[in-house]
Structures are given as C-alpha cells and as structure tokens.
Computed example of a mutant assay.
Amino acid sequence: MIPFVDLKTQYLSIKDEIDTAVLKVLASTQFVLGNEVKAFEEEFASYCNADYGIAVNTGTSALHLALLAAGIGAGDEVITVPFTFVATTAAICYTGATPVFVDIDPVSYTIDVTQIEKAITERTKAILPVHLYGQPADMEPILDIARRHGLAVIEDAAQAHGAEYKGQRVGSIGDIGCFSFYPGKNLGAYGEGGMAVTNNPEYAHTMGMLRDWGQERRYHHVLKGYNYRMDGIQGAILRVKLRYIEEWTEARRRHAAQYDQLLAKSGVGIPAVMPYSRHVYHVYAVRVPVGHATRSPQRDALQQSLQEQEIQTGIHYPIPVHLQAAYSDLDYKQGDFPHSELAANTVLSLPMYAEITPTQINTVGESFQSILQGVTV
C-alpha cells in the first residue's frame, strides 16, 4: 500500500527527539501553554518573518481570533473563495459577519484578484485569501485593493507553511496570517494546533487575550474570550518538527518535480507554479479531464482503480462551500462560481509527503498513466 500520507514513518525518523520533548513537558507539568508553547511561538513567528506568534488549539481558531482582532463582527462582510476547506467560511460566520465569495483563478486555484473589487460593498471589512495546496495567492494586487478601500487582509495559510510570495514568507504579508498544525499538514502536531502571526502588537495582544478567556492577567477578564489555548505537549512536538521543515519542504518540491515529469504527457493537468510563488506542495492535485460531462467520470474511476492497486488518493475538495448544505443560507447556487465548481469536480490529490520514495512515486505515476489509458468518459 502506498498511503496518501504516512505519519508513522515521519515520527520514527525523529522518534528520540519527539519522545524526549514530550517527556520534558510531562516532567514540567506545563500542560497548557507554558514555556514550550511560548518558545514555539517565537520560533515559528521568526520562521515566518513575523514579530509575534499566538499559538492556539486549531487553525480555525486562529482565523476566528484574527478576524475578531481586526474588528470584524456582525453586519460586516469578508471576501473569500468557495474552493477551500469549510473552516475558512466557518470562521467568518463565527464572528457574525457574512462571507462573500469570489471565484478562483483556474490556473492557480487561489482567489481571482480581478473579481475582488466588484464584490466590495460598504459593509466589506476584510479580504481573506487562501493559499491553497501550498501555493500563495497573488498578494500584491490584494494588498493594493485593501489599502485603497481600507480593508484588513487576513491570510489563510493553513496549507502553506514556508510558502513564499516574491521571496516573502506567507503569513507575514497581510495584517495577520493563520496556520493549522493538523497532523497531516506540512508542519503537523500530534493532535490539533494552530497559530496566528502578525507584525501588529495590538492585534497580537488582543488575540493573546481572546485565546485565554479574554484575560489580561489571571482572573482579570478584559474581553469576552475563548478557550483556544495550545497544549504544552503540542508546542514541544512542533518545536522539534520546525527544525526539519525546510528539509521536508525541499523533499516535497523534489517529489512534485518527479510527478511533473512522469505525468507531463499523461493528458491530466499538473499543478501550475505561479511565477511569484515558492510552492510547498501540501497537496499535489492533478486535474482530470471532464470530456463532455459536468463531473469527471474519469476522476472517480481513476481514483477507484488506484485504490484497487493499493494507492491511496484524496479529493480536495469535492463540494465547494457555496454548494454545501450548511451554507445554503448564503443564497448562492450552482453555476455562480464556475471555476471553483469545475475544480471541485476534476481535482485528484496524489500521495505527497516528505518521506515518500522516488520508487513509490514512479509506481504511482506508472499506475496512473496505465489506468488513465483505459478509462473513458
């Protein structure tokens, strides 16, 4: 079996360091926040070229607190994309604000910057671009639009640890950047975790209070806050793994290049790398042709055939948020965002992790092409 993600192999490669770090936290009894979390905040913020890091329990919580710190609330609108994990939209709704979607660029799968300005109303308070699959959104025009309209820019960098836009690390480009450390991420905890990074001390102070019941100091509740604190064990684990992230990222980039070469003549769309981008390949998503159908029978048949050959794949994401039942109250309909809908119907994610071997990638590529030749629309 070639797994879609192999967390055990990565753990075994750094087992002694991880075990030592966890035992250190157990001995210290600093199980919530504490010294390891504080050190990880400083180290990860530095990695992102940001001044402040606020560690929280999930990437969703990071988005929620970032929006609140930027003053987003009931009656406001936040512009984002429907082709993303649902947490992007959920965090906006948590504040009482309304998500306003614009379509993705069909090449990069990130927000179509040419569509943003026409979506702005007097209620718009922020733009929330998603750095999808490890590729940065086109931040320069986003920031230009935001400055001209007085809007905050909050980066959803949950899939983009270490990605760069024109040489600048994502997360430190907008007002606040938000990361997830879900186990399968490029930098993953052994449980849940997240972080917001910023260069704004007021935002950092506010988010630091909000994650810990709104306390400025113990039992002095300045704001109506939340229990979004990071566990000490996760902070310690992530500190160990942060030391390897560049090595793992370069491995992913090599693996992507190998996939690119293997699949160049297969007839599927391989991931585009935008000229401004350092892509970190959280997901290696190919695009399977649809023929004359609105869905891709090829995609579904191909995935099933690969599974039968013991190759695991994924689909990120099969239903865009505007067509999810939970968000039907936003009153969008099928056809509103054609590029997002087409991507949802045609993308297929191949096995991608730092520890996958060139031999395994060759097996995936050869199986992929062999199956595809026998699949018809």
Rank of each mutant, 00 (worst) to 15 (best):
V268C: 13
V321Q: 04
V268Q: 01
G314E: 09
K333L: 09
L242M: 10
S266M: 09
Q298M: 15
I319H: 05
Y281V: 02
R287H: 09
K241M: 13
D329R: 06
I315P: 00
R287Y: 11
Q307K: 15
Q298Y: 08
V321M: 12
L242W: 11
S277R: 01
S340V: 07
V290P: 01
G235F: 11
E341P: 03
I311Y: 02
Y226T: 05
S305I: 12
D329M: 06
P320K: 13
H255E: 00
P297T: 02
Q258M: 12
A325N: 05
Y226F: 15
T313L: 09
T313F: 10
Y276F: 15
G269L: 08
E310K: 14
L330G: 02
D300F: 10
K241Q: 12
Q234R: 10
A272W: 12
V321L: 09
V280K: 06
L323E: 02
Q334S: 06
K265D: 15
E247M: 12
Q234M: 15
Q309I: 07
K333M: 06
Y276R: 06
I315L: 07
R252L: 14
G335N: 03
V286A: 04
Q312P: 00
H339P: 00
V280G: 00
V240T: 07
G335W: 08
R278A: 02
S296P: 03
Q298V: 13
H292Y: 13
I237G: 00
M230L: 15
